[in-house]
Design a protein around this nucleic acid. Structure first.
Lengths: 110, 110
DNA sequence: CGGTATCCCAATTGATACTG
DNA sequence: CAGTATCAATTGGGATACCG
């Protein structure tokens, strides 16, 4: 049958997509921003309930690095920072919604 | 603003879907089975290249438990075991393909 | 208020050896 | 051939303290 790994199956793009949304809280953050449009750091933290400080800033930092969310810092004391979805982030949400819908349809399978 | 976690954002179904496909190799396995229809254990292992024995059987076991793949064992020596997508697995693939396509479109962003 | 750094524990994964 | 078992290495995440 002679199968070489190569790209009979090219999942590189999928792996890329997955790498953007893995991390325990990323998708939850994205969904909140999708729904609320703009949230401050503290609002996001309260919304997510049990997330730790470290995780939230870490996940946000990665989301920003990957260009899925945009961080806006107001130069004032005390600090004020707002987060919202980027254009790229916006395009991702319908796809995640699709997966969410699939989940809804199959959670009670078997 | 008073945000309670609850289900302003209901990602339970998404979390469910993610739980089925996390694990380093699961999606890759699913794509191969999608493409090839039926593969023996050894074929799958060669196809995946660097996957370890332990990982492959582990991931397959979970995929089978979650009803995404079907395992068929032939009672013979030496053993012969075939894997293929279940009906549920089939329905998932177009969704994953969507994510894959999104990845293709955005891998070279920025 | 928003973010970083450190330490520690829990969960995943890899290497290797063994089995029917 | 198709697994399972064991142990080591790596990774991810929580708690906490500190900084601008």
């Amino acid at each position: 049958m002679e199968m070489i790994e190569e790209d009979l199956v090219n999942v590189r793009p999928f792996a890329y997509a997955m790498s953007l949304i893995d991390g325990k809280w990323k998708v939850l953050i994205l969904f909140w921003l999708w729904k609320k449009e703009i949230l401050r750091y503290g609002e996001l933290k309260r919304a997510l309930g049990t997330i730790t400080h470290k995780m939230l800033s870490g996940q946000l930092k990665e989301l920003e690095k990957d260009d899925l969310v945009i961080r806006k810092e107001y130069p004032q004391v005390p600090p004020k920072v707002e987060y919202k979805l980027s254009q790229k982030g916006q395009t991702l949400m319908p796809v995640l919604q699709t997966l969410c819908t699939w989940g809804t349809d199959h959670m009670d399978d078997k």
